[in-house]
Design a protein around this nucleic acid. Structure first.
Length: 280
DNA sequence: ACTGATCCCTGCCAGC
DNA sequence: TGCTGGCAGGGATCAG
């Protein structure tokens, strides 16, 4: 599942491939893919209109914000969220795959396709900059690898919440880009149980969580993401972070630090795995 | 302020 | 073998 490091890997790989390319045709095969800025599925008329609007536009920029990918097409924006299984590819073998839902054809004969087995991914259209402000992307909290994610910020937010730390880490409005894998890994790193309320964490624990967020996400990017299930980057390559995972998904396995058997339970509505001995 | 359920969707796996 | 049911998962949304 693409989280910040996976999305970052994809965007880095895609930039050279699509920036400055002019779209001459948009082949949409799944009616529910496009949404408006509030997330509502576009009806046929709006869809057709939008596709017409981006015809002959150039992709002028491609950026990541949290887990979102922002395509800038001159004056128009498309905000993509890959959710669980969304992928971009330029592989001809995938063109006719039954899960390929969109193909952008470029002037130079190349193409970019979007493939998504579970169809959870979304393409939000933002026709003007005011539209962007209405999307959930603009409600995101600080980038965890940016300068706004300071220890002071994290401390203030955590002291002020009764929410358990796992739920907090997954709240995109507080920190952008963390999902279930990196949340579990960060908490193992920080030796904190996912169930601990934010306002009961010590300064030392908050510092470890802060450090863990930065360290684990950096490791994830460096490894080219985590290929759990079927994540591959824009070139169809797997990442390596799955080999560096210490706790996520290791139900019934033993902690490599202390040999205690991990606990797996639903916390914050997500399957969570942790070491009851190391993580207090 | 926060929790929990529901929805979207398909692949996969266990059980019969 | 082939069916069925349950589960996984991000995030929006809504009820409590």
């Amino acid at each position: 599942m693409p989280e910040l490091p996976e999305v970052e890997t994809i965007v880095r790989g895609l930039r050279d491939r699509v920036i400055d390319k002019k779209i001459i045709n948009t082949e949409l095969r799944y009616d529910k893919l496009f949404r408006d800025c509030s997330g509502k599925i576009l009806d046929q008329e709006s869809r057709d209109k939008f596709i017409k609007t981006i015809e002959n536009k150039r992709i002028t920029d491609l950026r990541r914000r949290g887990k979102y990918i922002l395509f800038q097409l001159e004056d128009i924006n498309i905000i993509v969220h890959l959710r669980m299984t969304g992928k971009f590819s330029s592989d001809e073998d995938v063109l006719n795959d039954k899960h390929t839902h969109l193909v952008f054809w470029f002037e130079d004969g190349t193409f970019l396709l979007y493939n998504d087995i579970r169809k959870f991914g979304t393409f939000q259209t933002a026709l003007c900059s005011e539209d962007i402000l209405k999307t959930s992307m603009s409600k995101l909290g600080p980038e965890p690898l940016g300068e706004d994610f300071t220890l002071e910020y994290l401390t203030a937010e955590l002291k002020n919440t009764k929410k358990n730390i796992k739920a907090f880490l997954l709240t995109q409005e507080k920190i952008a880009g963390i999902g279930n894998i990196y949340a579990d890994e960060v908490l193992f790193f920080a030796k904190v149980s996912p169930k601990r309320p934010g306002n009961q964490l010590s300064d030392k624990e908050i510092k470890s969580i802060h450090q863990g967020v930065i360290e684990k996400l950096r490791m994830g990017i460096e490894a080219g993401g985590a290929s759990i299930r079927n994540y591959v980057n824009e070139s169809g390559e797997k990442g390596n972070f799955q080999n560096l995972i210490k706790v996520y998904g290791k139900k019934g396995e033993k902690c490599q630090e202390c040999e205690t058997t991990f606990i797996t339970e639903t916390v914050a509505g997500r399957t969570s795995t942790w070491c009851p001995n190391c993580q207090k």
